[in-house]
Amino acid sequence: MPLPGGRGLLLGLAAAAAAVMAARLMGWWSPRAGFRLFIPEELARYRGGPGDPGLYLALLGRVYDVSSGRRHYEPGAHYSCFAGRDASRAFVTGDYSEAGLVDDVSDLSFSEMLTLQNWLSFYENNYEFAGRVIGRFYGEDGLPTPELTQVEAMITKGLEANKQELKEKQKFPPCNAEWSAARGGRFWCSQTSGGVSRDWTGVPRKLYKPGAKEPHCVCVRTTGPPSDQAPDNPTHRNHGDLDHPSLEEYAGCPPLAMTCSVPL
């Protein structure tokens, strides 16, 4: 059951993708004409076995007809445990026990909520929407409950955090790194290190983040104005981002070297 240029361009695509996903997410919660409401006991009959009326599963209260993927969900198949119920939590945790096959996602993290959003997109794009389950996420009127509204808010925040993370990754791309028990560590920068294509190479630096126990190696631009200043600002020192307060040089590494070795 598989899941489905330059700095300015990447940031623009990230922002557009976040906006599109957020808009689609809002649309998913909106009423649809003629949708069906299920109580959990009724949904439990849709496990795809002999005499069952169909093969359905639910995710975040939304019911999908997965008959076209019968080989994944029918009795005896690997994902048969998802059929006939809302087991939203297990889509993230991988806990296929009865205790784990539940719809309670209240303690999941932002990133885990984004995983659920990805699964929701998968089912929206690949299977037919069949209705909603009355319970945790939808009321007897078929409208979203406060708990579903909270899930939606967490997904939105997760999308915003991802956008911010991408923006920071463009500013401070991760270094290339290797480790040898005989020689220690080596960090170096290239125009594609960290999976970020750019028109500069940069030099390795330690980046300290609030709340992180250890710094991690990033590549830092060495010329031009800091990233938070306009290119035509006449007051900058032409140091790129080298003066950023959260950065630290590697001991024993020349300040403008593109490769740094950290001995044992």
Rank of each mutant, 00 (worst) to 15 (best):
R70T: 13
L207Y: 01
P173K: 05
T149Q: 08
Y73E: 13
L3E: 13
P255S: 05
D199L: 13
N162V: 14
C175I: 06
C189M: 12
A18P: 00
M258K: 00
C253T: 01
W179D: 06
R136M: 03
V63Q: 03
L11N: 05
A83E: 07
Y96T: 15
R237K: 12
P225W: 00
T156E: 15
E41Q: 10
G131R: 15
N126I: 00
A87R: 07
T259A: 03
P210W: 09
R205S: 01
S121N: 14
E165D: 14
S68K: 14
T222K: 01
P210F: 11
G8Y: 00
A83K: 04
E147S: 13
T115M: 09
G224E: 04
G76A: 08
L101I: 01
A182R: 15
N126L: 02
L59T: 01
G195Q: 07
C189S: 09
D243F: 02
A33G: 05
R70N: 13
L256I: 04
S121F: 13
A14L: 15
H216G: 12
S111K: 10
L9M: 06
A58I: 11
L57C: 05
R198W: 07
L166C: 01
G61E: 08
L13Y: 11
V105H: 03
P75N: 09
A23Y: 13
E214D: 11
D199F: 13
K213H: 14
G135E: 02
K157Q: 14
T223E: 00
P234L: 06
Q170S: 15
Q170G: 10
F187W: 06
W29M: 12
L37G: 00
P263R: 07
M258Q: 04
R62I: 07
S97A: 06
S180K: 14
L264A: 06
M26S: 09
H78C: 06
F91V: 06
V151R: 04
Y46K: 05
A14W: 11
P144G: 09
M154S: 05
V203N: 10
Y208S: 14
T156R: 15
G12F: 08
L55F: 01
F35A: 08
L148H: 00
L55K: 00
V262Y: 01
G6M: 12
L166W: 01
E140Y: 05
G5A: 15
D141I: 02
V262I: 10
K171V: 13
Y138R: 01
G100I: 05
E178A: 15
R62M: 10
R45T: 10
E41T: 05
Y208G: 05
P146R: 09
G76P: 10
K157S: 14
S197E: 09
E160M: 10
D86W: 06
E160Y: 09
F82R: 02
G84V: 02
G135Q: 02
G194E: 03
S197D: 07
R183L: 12
S190D: 14
A87H: 09
E41R: 07
K157Y: 10
A23S: 15
G131Y: 11
P255M: 02
S80V: 04
A19Q: 07
L43E: 03
P234Q: 06
S193N: 04
W119N: 03
M113I: 00
V203L: 15
A181F: 11
G100N: 08
L57A: 04
L143D: 07
P2G: 08
M258C: 00
